[in-house]
Design a protein around this nucleic acid. Structure first.
Length: 150
DNA sequence: GCCAACGTTGGC
DNA sequence: GCCAACGTTGGC
């Protein structure tokens, strides 16, 4: 059982959207490092759902992986904002996973709150200039974040 | 809207 | 292979 953190703009998909839908496809990842992490995800893994590019950036809840990585259909859909003209059904370099809702936090854990935790200082999320949208979380980091919800 | 930082592209 | 230019990310 591995732990992850994934960023989403809440205008695109928020933790409340996922709660309402029950599950959703996590697609549109167009960075190779992030894609490689998607491919490492296993059924039942948990992830922190992070809200980015919004008024209250931070960790908004928890989801689980309900289907491991498969070819991202959005890359082949000309109507999708994630369309990749160089991708084909025979050769699609991009991956998606399906995720399920688990928990919506009562309050979003803000970046400022996260930065105060020395146990989290190594997270890519908190590194200056880091834009990685999918990243692993260690068990220690997972517990340190959960402690903030108490 | 600003801007720092990053990843990608493409000419050479 | 280098590197300048460009587009994107994402906090503020």
């Amino acid at each position: 059982m591995a732990y992850w953190l994934m960023k989403s703009e809440p205008e695109e998909l928020s933790i409340l959207d996922l709660q309402r839908l029950g599950s959703a496809r996590w697609d549109g990842v167009r960075n190779y490092q992030a894609r490689n992490f998607l491919r490492q995800m296993q059924l039942g893994d948990s992830f922190f759902f992070y809200h980015s590019s919004c008024p209250q950036p931070g960790i908004a809840g928890i989801g689980t992986i309900s289907a491991s990585a498969y070819a991202d259909p959005a890359a082949l859909d000309p109507h999708s904002g994630y369309y990749d003209g160089k991708a084909s059904s025979e050769k699609n370099p991009w991956s998606a996973v399906t995720v399920a809702h688990h928990t919506t936090f009562k309050r979003v854990l803000s970046l400022a709150q996260l930065r105060q935790q020395s146990a989290l200082s190594a997270m890519p999320l908190l590194q200056k200039g880091s834009r990685l949208s999918v990243m692993p979380v260690t068990p220690e980091e997972w517990q340190a974040v959960l402690a903030l919800t108490q």
